[in-house]
Design a protein around this nucleic acid. Sequence first.
DNA 1: CTTCCGAATTGGTTCAGATCAAGCTACAAC
DNA 2: GTTGTAGCTTGATCTGAACCAATTCGGAAG
Lengths: 232, 232
Amino acid sequence: MGLNCADSVLLDRYVKRKRIVKRGQVLYRVGEEFAHAYAIRSGSVKTCISTDDGRLQITGFHIPGELLGLNAVDENRYNCEAVALETTSVCEISASCFEELARQIPSMHYQMLRMMSREVKHNQKLMLLLGKKNAEERLATYLLNLSRRFAMRNFSSTQFNLSMSRGDIGNYLGIAEETVSRTLTRFQEEGMIICERRLIILKDVKRLSGIAREFNPAIAQVIPLLRPTPRL
Amino acid sequence: MGLNCADSVLLDRYVKRKRIVKRGQVLYRVGEEFAHAYAIRSGSVKTCISTDDGRLQITGFHIPGELLGLNAVDENRYNCEAVALETTSVCEISASCFEELARQIPSMHYQMLRMMSREVKHNQKLMLLLGKKNAEERLATYLLNLSRRFAMRNFSSTQFNLSMSRGDIGNYLGIAEETVSRTLTRFQEEGMIICERRLIILKDVKRLSGIAREFNPAIAQVIPLLRPTPRL
DNA sequence: CTTCCGAATTGGTTCAGATCAAGCTACAAC
DNA sequence: GTTGTAGCTTGATCTGAACCAATTCGGAAG
């Protein structure tokens, strides 16, 4: 995200070297171990995430003077490539400043950083969902996400209560509440779930997963980023 | 976002008191000075942002065991209210742990935190755009955002080059590249911009702002959150 | 100069999902 | 019990934007 002049000065001692990157060249990929942050000097760069079938959602463009790659407390979660017609050049910034960061803050505060990082991750997935998924995919993604979170807290992962209304779910997923209702009904007719008002029982998680088209870092790495985004 | 058991233990000494919140009750509002974080004990809670005309986008639901409010390095940027039919209870967590955090880390690293925070802010706005805005609003928002960022870096704010293709813009904004093209043409016909391939000249920023329906914290505070989300 | 090719524009058609409308259901208040 | 009501479901219609297709434009390479 944005970096103003005051910020830049502070980063100077970490700058390693300047690089020219070709259009379409990938600076880093989702899931790769974190190596550098970059300050854009000219041209511009985009960051994106993708579904497991290769639909891309661009999450941001970065113009000269801006910095990127700093959201990676544990691992990168965007792909990132140069996008401008003109020459794009960047400064590499050493990863060592992050190691320092990790060493210097007490563990409790590091946990908080990790939580902010998780927040970013959640937002990524929601953006991908809002930008590129259809109603069925949105609902399936949502149910599986809830399931996983309940499991993590030692509740049943296949049977739970939606504590939120259809309207709220629709708002969250960017669809109308009627569409939520219809889609849940269809899932039920096809035997994937049992859905009685707020009670949800997942009957066929595998098929739901197939529909959800979730973010998949492993596959994201091999997408030829120069190609236009595949249509739904 | 999620908080696992290990995290919880670390936070214990900051827990202040337990609170029962009624359905629809607002825990905190966008723009308010930061006061507490909350750990959900029962029920559930939603966080949301809104456009200046009151369209809400829910950005997350929080179930028991989860923590929220920690993304606020400088100020809150969600509204947050209880959403479950059943009783929702939460633990307040003292803000002092954040002050401690701010004191303990060196200023350069604090800058990085602020940048992560800005990243979250950007993602918020993008989610609102992807979830609740139509094509015109998306484009207007995008042009004004670019304008502001160029101005911040001492470029002209009313005349600049899009370094990205129509396809990339469309992908980012969650619309087809043909729609980008058509909408820019319409803006031009209506005299709001001059648009010649990648060159953009903004002629009527005020009208564009009117269309963009940007996030507006001041108004977000008075939205009656119990009402169903207004339709577009 | 000409050729080529990717990017952009413009027109026409289609469709997923919004919107409008009418019941239905479960539960709370009395 | 009855009434009221918010939440949910289902059906019918409408529409914004996707999709498909055909040019046009502009810069790069020869």
